[in-house]
């Protein structure tokens, strides 16, 4: 298991390195003089040269890239071109907001989607199953930014139940939680439907296995069979889908953070890209990639752990 974990982590680091390289080349290849774009037409050559030096763009690309990597290893992500603040400081302020949003979104989606999938199986092909099916597909079909705008208009603007913008008062958990509700709802809704469908399909397959017949033959109730005997096995393939889906959740949070004017990595990246603030873009992409890759690695380990057959093979 340790050996396997080590291999997975090494693979994760490779993926990370590769992503950074692609990002770097992409930024380098963007046409036009970034200094000219950033400073406008009236900039003097000295100002441009100064800006290029601050962005580190006056060196050959391989030197830029390797010094970038070396700096990262020292925990140095460079400076914000405009405010001159440390990028690492900016990110460590905003990243927690995004992580909380991502986990809250997937969290409530799991808490609702998995039981819905199970009930679909318990009452399969009945009225209940159909209703859950129709709801699920509708949830999947509505884009999350549309949901975001709607709930914003209804619950924040019209009814004034919940705040429309921001992430809540600092240090006030209740206010932060209230600010989380609408964006997390918007991002997670599609996932509720997706998980309900996934769990249903995966579980129906498991329900055909022989050991389920054994559990029934010993008089265990259908609810017990579903939740105790079938669920764990059905969730194994779902875990990897959730991990892959975390990428989607992060892109979903870009919309949500912009719509709800919520400080977070999505909002930060958006602003940095539009203002050509490359060090911030690179830092933000790196941190989200680290987040995504670690989720994938954890999912792989969790899957291996859930299935004792795999766990033993990997020993």
């Amino acid at each position: 298991m340790l050996n396997y974990a080590f291999k997975r982590v090494m693979l994760g680091i490779l993926i990370l390195l590769f992503t950074m390289m692609v990002m770097y080349v992409a930024v380098y290849l963007i046409p036009g003089d970034p200094a000219a774009v950033a400073l406008g037409p009236r900039a003097t050559p000295e100002m441009k040269a100064d800006l290029l030096a601050r962005m580190g763009l006056d060196q050959p690309i391989y030197i830029q890239f390797s010094s970038f990597i070396v700096n990262i290893l020292h925990g140095d992500l460079g400076l914000d071109v405009w405010s001159n603040r440390e990028v690492s400081a900016i990110i460590s302020e905003t990243m927690p907001n995004t992580m909380i949003l991502a986990f809250a979104s997937i969290g409530w989606a799991l808490a609702l989607g998995i039981p819905l999938g199970c009930f679909s199986v318990i009452y399969r092909n009945s009225f209940v199953d159909r209703i859950i099916g129709i709801l699920s597909v509708s949830f999947i079909a509505i884009p999350s930014f549309v949901v975001a705008i709607f709930v914003l208009l209804i619950f924040a603007v019209q009814l004034r139940w919940l705040p429309a913008i921001g992430a809540g008062e600092e240090g006030d958990i209740l206010s932060q939680a209230r600010a989380l509700i609408l964006p997390a709802f918007a991002i997670g809704l599609g996932w509720v439907g997706y998980l309900a469908r996934m769990v249903r399909a995966s579980m129906l397959e498991v329900m055909g296995e022989q050991h389920i017949r054994t559990a029934r033959a010993f008089g265990l109730s259908e609810t017990r069979v579903v939740f105790r005997y079938a669920l764990a096995i059905s969730l194994i393939p779902v875990i990897s889908l959730i991990a892959v889906g975390m990428g989607g959740i992060i892109s979903g949070s870009v919309f949500a953070e912009i719509i709800f004017a919520r400080p977070g990595i999505g909002n930060l990246t958006y602003n940095a890209v539009t203002s050509r603030n490359y060090p911030v873009v690179m830092g933000a992409v790196m941190v989200t990639t680290v987040f995504y890759v670690s989720i994938t690695v954890m999912a792989d380990l969790l899957m291996a752990y859930t299935d004792p057959r795999v766990r033993d093979v990997l020993k």
Binding site: E209, Q210, H211, R213, T214, A215, R216, A217, F218, G219, L220, S221, R228, Y229, A232, I233, T306, D307, P308, R309
Partner: peptide, 24 residues
């Protein structure tokens, strides 16, 4: 039926390799 199964009537299924739940 639930009272019948595993109480009045107990069963041993044919294939022992797939009789038990693999993750419990």
């Amino acid at each position: 039926l639930r009272k019948l199964r595993g109480y009045d009537i107990a069963t041993v299924f044919q294939d022992p390799m797939t009789t038990f739940n693999p993750v419990m």
